[in-house]
Design a protein around this nucleic acid. Structure first.
Lengths: 251, 251
DNA sequence: CAATCTTGTTTTGTCATACCAAATTTTTGC
DNA sequence: GCAAAAATTTGGTATGACAAAACAAGATTG
């Protein structure tokens, strides 16, 4: 509708985006469309124009347009359901992390790989609880208390307990005020949960985990980073033991 | 050559891989090829079979084969230079993180976004130096000493100084014995360096940074996590100040 | 008049072909 | 043997076509 001035694909490699030597017609289209998404000309959540329109706008063949769309979908800049128009997805940390999920899953076939990833989670959360103990605000601690309470109330409902468990840890990530951390938390949840859900669950075990959460919380309230870190480490290490056995049982 | 039994594309959605309802011809090809990569039938580093061969093997059109190749390239399972055969890339943490680089770069347009990412780096390295101080092995510390020495020797060569600076931090990531961390380090280097390289560099500044590295190192040798964390925090915060001004200068 | 059904149009997914230029392999000439 | 040249293969792009699904609009019905 609005004047979309002709924008033929032109210069082969005027940019130094990546380390390749030659042309790539679809790249130009991707670049232009991504620029439109970033600038807001293509608003988030809105469907992409029809392929025919893009063909006209870029003066390229359907092959190239289609290739561009596929690339952008893979990158997470578009969400494309099979027979529908691709939806524009303005990137954020969350979608960025989501976009590597397909690769990460390939890496989590071995228990050592899962362990490596889980160890990074322990590492990060150790830092989180330390910081929470040292500089968590009153509001933060109240939110943590609420999450803890919800966790306690769910002890007899393993499914709900798992959810509130995740949420409790999620509050820790949120306390950083840094949007990267919640995205990381979501990634851990998404990547590790398939392995976690194979674990035995029962109220007794939930009670133990709740106790760990409480210990962490108490240490934070006491402004004792060492104790908080220790409680967190104990908690996650013991959780790992429960997961590990499900691996050993397999082979 | 080897018996590559006919493997026509068949069932639409026998898997519950993602959350969509319908067909997806290229997905079947992607899945089969990725399985071949994971199983080693398509060895890492080797070129993918020619498109025409894949057409025969899967009984699909070139459109579909091509689509599959593009998707896999975007995921990092293939490395495709413009006019060459795609190279098979067995996934690892490094390529996983690389694959989201294109999205991340879109997020790093604003100084606050860069700051958020950089803050996560500070957060992680605070933990790294603490752990190094508490449990770094003698061999680790020797490696760190060597990196520090190389850094010192490069004070008058800003380019080399940057390299050895990165390497010094890289040793900290390596001390975890967890392959995820070096990948994270590489990601930080790749994503932040475009912004860092705009920073003023001169031997005088290099000397200051070297001093910071030395302070971190000394604290680690002294087995003093608090001091190490403090030195690291001071170091990175002051580095940020140098980067920040390049943003302010822009607008 | 609202809700639903029917119908016609658009759009995407897929296939088949074709052509060029670059890459690769083979042949040729020394 | 080895380098240059020719032949072949291969990837990048353009077209055109068609079915099935999605969409929009009109017709029908309660």
């Amino acid at each position: 509708m609005v004047d979309q001035a002709d924008q033929e694909i032109s210069a082969p490699d005027t940019d130094g985006d990546e380390a390749h030597g030659e042309s790539r017609a679809a790249d130009a289209v991707v670049k232009a469309l991504e620029a439109d998404i970033l600038s807001g000309a293509l608003p988030d959540g809105r469907p992409l124009p029809a392929e025919r329109d893009l063909i006209q706008r870029f003066g390229a063949s359907r092959t190239v347009i289609r290739e561009a769309i596929i690339m952008m979908s893979a990158r997470g800049m578009l969400q494309s359901r099979p027979r529908h128009r691709p939806i524009v997805k303005r990137p954020d940390y969350r979608t960025a992390i989501d976009s590597i999920g397909s690769i990460i899953r390939h890496l989590l076939v071995d228990s050592t790989d899962v362990r490596n990833l889980f160890d990074t989670r322990i590492f990060i959360e150790r830092g989180l609880v330390r910081d929470a103990a040292m500089s968590g605000t009153k509001a933060d601690i109240e939110k943590l208390a609420a999450a803890l309470e919800a966790n306690h109330a769910a002890i007899d409902d393993s499914e709900e307990f798992y959810r509130t468990d995740t949420e409790f840890h999620g509050v820790l990530y949120g306390m950083t005020r840094n949007p990267v951390f919640p995205a990381v938390h979501a990634a851990y949840a998404a990547w590790l949960s398939p392995h976690w859900l194979r674990m035995q669950r029962h109220p007794e075990r939930n009670r133990v985990n709740y106790g760990s959460h409480k210990a962490i919380f108490d240490a934070i309230v006491d402004r004792d980073p060492e104790a908080a870190e220790r409680a967190l480490t104990d908690h996650l290490r013991s959780a790992w033991e429960y997961v590990r056995v499900t691996f050993d049982a397999d082979r």
